[in-house]
């Protein structure tokens, strides 16, 4: 019997190793995605496109990833502006369930969204930076679905440097405003201003206006 146990011991140990694998392992390339949705003025009309992007992102995200959607309104540096957030379970079946629930929440938000008077993009960025910092993820991506025209109410201070090392910031669907059409330099200067702010904070900046390129968001 001793000899039998001699053979069975490594097998049993292997099985125990499988059972204990969670304790000895590390998350494999988990990603944190924080998406800011501009709800100011007429930009709410663009939210259907945002839904498409969110659906696509949900198909791309894997178990263990973190995803949050927040609105950009008058004062966005607040947890209250987070519309939906989820950390996907390790089990694929549970992840699928979470994705469906998440999409329902987003749909509900888009149906009932109210336009805000001001656009606090910086506050939203700071909130995103803070939120993703709290989560143990290897890739941090901030998506800004906005025309990138910041409009702050009086008294709000947003002249703050970002800390965006190892962050990727993607501006999505940056629409041209009437003034931009009159003088395109305004649009370019606006984008350059945001690029500088992000890159000065150590982040990587990119703009995706063509929704056919949404595959590049998480590259």
């Amino acid at each position: 019997m001793k000899r039998i146990s001699k053979f069975l011991t490594p097998i049993v140990l292997s099985l125990i190793l499988i059972g204990c694998s969670d304790d000895q392992s590390a998350p494999l390339g988990s990603r944190g995605v924080y998406m800011l949705l501009d709800t100011s003025g007429t930009y709410t009309e663009e939210l259907d496109k945002a839904r498409q992007i969110i659906s696509f992102l949900l198909t791309q995200l894997n178990p263990g990833d973190t995803f949050a959607i927040a609105r950009i309104d008058t004062a966005s540096f607040s947890e209250k502006d987070i519309v939906a957030k989820v950390k996907f379970d390790d089990r694929p079946s549970a992840t699928n369930q979470q994705k469906r629930v998440f999409l329902d929440d987003v749909d509900s938000f888009i149906r009932n969204v109210q336009s805000s008077s001001y656009t606090d993009i910086s506050g939203g960025m700071l909130q995103a930076q803070e939120y993703l910092m709290e989560h143990d993820v290897r890739e941090r991506v901030i998506l800004v679905f906005s025309d990138m025209q910041e409009d702050l109410p009086e008294g709000y201070v947003r002249d703050i440097s970002f800390t965006l090392e190892d962050y990727k910031v993607v501006a999505l669907n940056v629409t041209k405003l009437r003034e931009d059409n009159m003088d395109p330099r305004v649009y370019m200067e606006r984008l350059d201003m945001w690029r500088n702010r992000v890159e000065e904070g150590g982040g990587y900046w990119t703009v995706i206006n063509d929704l056919d390129r949404i595959e590049e968001i998480l590259d």
Binding site: D22, S25, P63, D90
Partner: peptide, 24 residues
Amino acid sequence: MAEMVGGNTAIGNLRVADIAALVI
């Protein structure tokens, strides 16, 4: 197997689910 041992954990560059399947 990812349902049993998690689909997002790894030892080295190998997913734990793959290792568990291989071990079995």
